[in-house]
Each structure stands twice: as structure tokens, then as C-alpha cells.
Write a protein that binds this DNA or RNA. Structure first.
Length: 365
DNA sequence: CTACGCCGGTA
DNA sequence: TACCGGCGTAG
């Protein structure tokens, strides 16, 4: 992985993760000027850096903004920036763990940001963030202009490092975070979050308990282990049986703002769908590459895929890794060929090229 | 493994 | 022009 500025919007989240991680080792002196001065959330309680447990959301209060973006000479973390940071953090808590794994507590604190970016981050990129995932970078992430709604007291306590909670090691705090787009509400109990989703997003009447379980798809459980650092991923990955949301990165734009009642399940897969569709589409180019003069309809597979708008050029599913031995040989065309269309029995209907075992000229690829 | 697409060669 | 050996690939 590379520098933050090169990353797509969601890459910025990762960068923050790196920063988050490092904040564990960063002393107060590392904080940007103004960070303490503003301290709009009473973060000034940072005074026990040594005692600081670098895992968990507690660190969210101390995300050092990358210096490249916010040089010390500048104003620092003003309210807007802090809100933005908190927003992006609150929408992507599950990736906290992995990124912190490769870096041990003994990591140098000289330049945490660089360390996080350029350090032994081979594992950083490959193991922790599923870099292969090809969905669109959620556009929301790039513009964290919508701060999260005010957090409930319990969440605030947790997030901002209630001293009492911080002392409690080996404790796992479970929070429930709304995954609804631009919401990110964090509540302490599943019933609360369900009620929140039901009433706020699904438009159900609060008094009518008509929950059909759909709410489950819209929140995720933050199983935050305050204790273990190396546990990062594993402590976050296991989802409660009640929560159907996969341990996907919540920074994803779920892109299902108005889910239909009919298919609730696919919605949880929606982050993957675009990619899948893309590959599927390109892998089965059968429908897509027919020549206009397509003759008989024998093999016609009915209406073509209505080109979904989500399909974009993307990474073309080039059959890479083909053996370079035979030089330039086109991968086998997937279009209909005369043999396929007419069959061996109607060989006389084939184009001459096909008859001669040459490249079919009727159904060009 | 077979079926297939088709390159390269031959008649 | 007509055909086919044989290679590489997909299933």
C-alpha cells in the first residue's frame, strides 16, 4: 500500500487507522497544536500515554491528522476536522484491529504516521483490508461532512475514554452501530439499535413492535476488546449470531438507502455485488459481444442483461496469467461459433472459416 | 479427460 | 480454396 494521498477515499480511512494505531504510542506532545486547546469533547484527560491501551475506539479521540495534511504550523485539529475524523472513525470501527496488528507496542513513536504508511505494511495492505475488494469507494467517505449524530452518553464514555472504563482491562464492550448511510448511531444495546433503526430509518411506528428482524441488517455489533491488541481482528470479526451483517468494513457505502422489503438478504451483500456483477458480466460475455448481424436465434439466451448502472469499466477481467508460451493467442472467444450455433450436423451452414477450422468470421469476438 | 477455437501448415 | 494437425483453453 502506499501513501495516503494516493488512496481512494476509503483509503483515507486506512490511513486514519494507521494513525489511530500509532496514537497508542504517541505521547501528548505528538498531538497537534490546538488539539488540546480545543478539546471540545474533554479530551484533555490524556495524561497517561504510557498507560494507554492502543486498541479500541478509545483512540478515536486522538487520531493525529496526518502531518502531510495538517502540518503543525497550521491551525491543527479544529472542530470541523475533529468532527470529520470522528465521523469517519465511527463509520469504520471494524478495521481498527487489523491495522494495528503488525505493529507491536514497541513500535517507534518517532513518526507514527510514516510508520503506519510505509512500515512493514505488506501485511497491512494484504491481510487487513482485503485490498482485492473492488467495490466503489464509498463516496461518502471522501466527504465526511455529515458528522455523526450526538453520541449517547454511554458511547461517549466509551469512545472518549471514561477513566473508569479505561482501567477495566480484559473487558469487552459491546456496542451496536447503525450502518445506515450517514447515520452511524452507536447504541449500547441491540434493542436500542433495533428500535433506532426501526423508527428512524425504516419508518416504523415506535409503539408498534412490528420488527421482522430487518433491523438486523442495518446495524453491526462492535465487539470491542479493550484489552488485547493483537487480538484486533479476531475480536472484531466474530459477529453475534443475531447480527447478520458480515464483518465487512462499515465504511462501505451500503448503497441501499431504501431497501425493499422483498429482498432483505441481498442488502447485506451489497458491498460485494458490484464487483461480482462486474466479473460475472465480463466473464460471460456471451450476451454482450454478439455481432449485429446475429442470425438465427437458436442460441439466443433471451434478453440480455440489462446493463446495470453499477457496472463500470472497472478492472477488466482479463484472463491474466495465461501461459505466455504460445505468444499471442487470443483467449478463446466466448461468442457463439458456427459449430455451436448450427451444430455438427449442419456443418454446411457454417461460415467457411469455421469449416476450415479457422477463426470464425460470422460470430466475431 | 473431452470439446472446442483456431493457428499454422499443407495440398 | 479446401482441409487438417495440433496446440491451448474451458468445462
Amino acid at each position: 500500500m502506499i501513501g495516503c494521498h494516493c488512496l481512494p477515499p476509503w483509503g483515507a480511512v486506512f490511513c486514519q487507522q494507521g494513525a489511530i494505531h500509532c496514537s497508542g504510542q504517541v505521547g501528548p506532545e505528538e498531538l497537534l497544536p490546538g488539539q488540546k486547546a480545543e478539546d471540545p469533547w474533554g479530551l484533555g484527560s490524556w495524561d497517561e500515554a504510557g498507560d494507554w491501551d492502543p486498541s479500541g475506539l478509545l483512540q478515536s479521540a486522538y487520531i493525529p491528522v496526518p502531518r502531510q495534511r495538517c502540518p503543525p504550523g497550521k491551525a491543527g485539529l479544529d472542530e470541523v476536522m475533529a468532527a470529520a475524523v470522528l465521523t469517519s472513525l465511527s463509520t469504520s470501527p471494524l478495521i481498527l484491529g487489523p491495522s494495528s496488528v503488525p505493529f507491536g507496542p514497541a513500535e517507534s513513536c518517532c513518526d507514527p504516521w510514516k510508520e503506519a504508511l510505509a512500515g512493514p505494511s505488506g501485511s497491512y495492505s494484504s491481510s487487513s483490508n482485503s485490498g482485492d475488494w473492488g467495490w466503489d469507494p464509498p463516496s461518502d467517505q471522501s466527504s465526511p461532512s455529515t458528522p455523526s449524530p450526538p453520541l449517547p452518553p454511554e458511547a461517549a464514555h466509551f469512545l472518549f475514554g471514561d477513566p473508569v472504563l479505561r482501567k477495566r482491562k480484559n473487558s469487552v464492550k459491546v456496542m451496536f452501530k447503525c450502518l445506515w448511510k450517514s447515520c452511524g448511531e452507536v447504541l449500547s444495546t441491540s434493542s436500542r439499535i433495533q428500535k433506532h433503526i426501526s423508527t428512524m430509518h425504516l419508518g416504523r411506528r415506535a409503539e408498534l413492535d412490528q420488527s421482522d428482524g430487518e433491523e438486523d441488517f442495518y446495524y453491526t455489533e462492535l465487539d470491542i476488546n479493550v484489552d488485547s491488541l493483537t487480538d484486533g481482528l479476531s475480536s472484531l470479526t466474530p459477529m453475534s449470531p443475531t447480527s447478520s451483517v458480515p464483518p465487512a468494513f462499515p465504511s462501505l457505502d451500503l448503497a441501499v438507502p431504501a431497501p425493499s422489503e422483498t429482498t432483505a438478504v441481498p442488502t447485506i451483500l451489497s458491498p460485494v455485488v458490484p464487483t461480482t456483477l462486474c466479473h460475472v458480466h465480463s466473464d460471460h460475455a456471451y450476451q454482450g459481444c454478439l455481432t449485429p448481424g446475429h442470425p438465427v436465434g437458436t442460441g439466443h439466451k433471451g434478453p440480455q442483461l440489462s446493463q446495470p448502472t453499477v457496472l463500470k469499466p472497472f478492472v477488466p477481467a482479463i484472463p491474466s496469467g495465461l501461459k505466455p508460451t504460445t505468444g499471442i493467442r487470443k483467449p478463446r472467444g466466448e461468442a457463439k461459433k458456427c459449430r455451436k450455433v448450427y451444430g455438427m450436423e449442419n456443418r454446411d451452414m457454417w461460415c467457411t472459416a469455421c469449416r476450415w477450422k479457422k477463426a470464425c468470421q460470422r460470430f466475431l469476438d
